[in-house]
């Protein structure tokens, strides 16, 4: 399977995701934001980091870059798109995913491992997880507080477009297990076509027991199958 990782000035998880993809047998290419063409890709990843120093709003400037026009075209023709952390913020700013990512409720940058419940696995990114699996991934962000209008929130819940919610190790989902204030403890969302996933946690950091755990692997093997 061919993957492309888009690189902006300020991206800092691009090498991590490239390592994860290569380890899991993707044929990966790095794509610079000024490029006007995408290599043939089954999966496009927009990595985490601080593209353009988070100027204006996180992801706002990157969303207007040359290569994003091509990513939007690919997304609209069904290519799988994965936006992690700043990548999620960029996808929101392009309008490919709806809603907004506000500052964390307690105004602090949060960098820690959190528990997530796989609330929906009926999509190409999560089918190798079991529904209600509890996994542990790392988060590292300042603006991860997901917000959306009531009718869109209902649509997300009804159409199974929320694959991950913040919880504790027993799977409890409530305010006390919500690290950043996200509405309904949302950690990631899909578009209606379920080919675009935006998530704040970093699955690429959880692919090796030597440095963390292997809870992130399921996401990549789901895409491969």
């Amino acid at each position: 399977m061919n993957s492309s990782v888009i690189v902006f000035p300020g991206s800092n998880c691009d090498r991590d995701i490239a390592t994860a993809l290569t380890k899991l047998q993707f044929k990966n290419k790095m794509v610079w934001h000024k490029d006007n063409e995408l290599p043939k890709s089954d999966l496009i990843v927009i990595p985490g980091g601080f593209s353009y120093g988070d100027y204006l709003r996180s992801g706002a400037i990157a969303a207007k870059s040359n290569i994003l026009n091509e990513v939007i075209k690919a997304a609209n023709s069904g290519c799988l798109i994965l936006g992690i952390c700043n990548g999620f913020q960029i996808l929101i700013e392009t309008g490919l995913l709806k809603g907004a990512l506000l500052r964390n409720k307690d105004l602090k940058f949060i960098s820690k491992d959190v528990y997530l419940k796989v609330t929906n696995n009926n999509n190409k990114f999560c089918k190798n997880y079991k529904k209600n699996n509890i996994i542990r991934l790392n988060i590292a962000h300042n603006e991860g507080n997901y917000f959306t209008q009531k009718d869109h929130l209902k649509e997300l819940e009804d159409k199974e477009l929320i694959p991950f919610k913040y919880c504790n190790k027993n799977g409890l989902i409530n305010d006390s297990t919500n690290p950043n204030g996200s509405i309904n403890n949302i950690a990631g969302i899909l578009n209606n076509g379920k080919n675009i996933l935006g998530m704040m946690p970093h699955p690429e950091r959880m692919i090796d027991n030597l440095i963390s755990n292997t809870d992130g692997i399921g996401l990549f093997t789901s895409i491969l199958n």
Binding site: L56, E93, L102
Partner: peptide, 8 residues
């Protein structure tokens, strides 16, 4: 187009 995120 750029300066404002009209959702928020």
């Amino acid at each position: 187009k750029l300066l404002v995120n009209l959702i928020i």
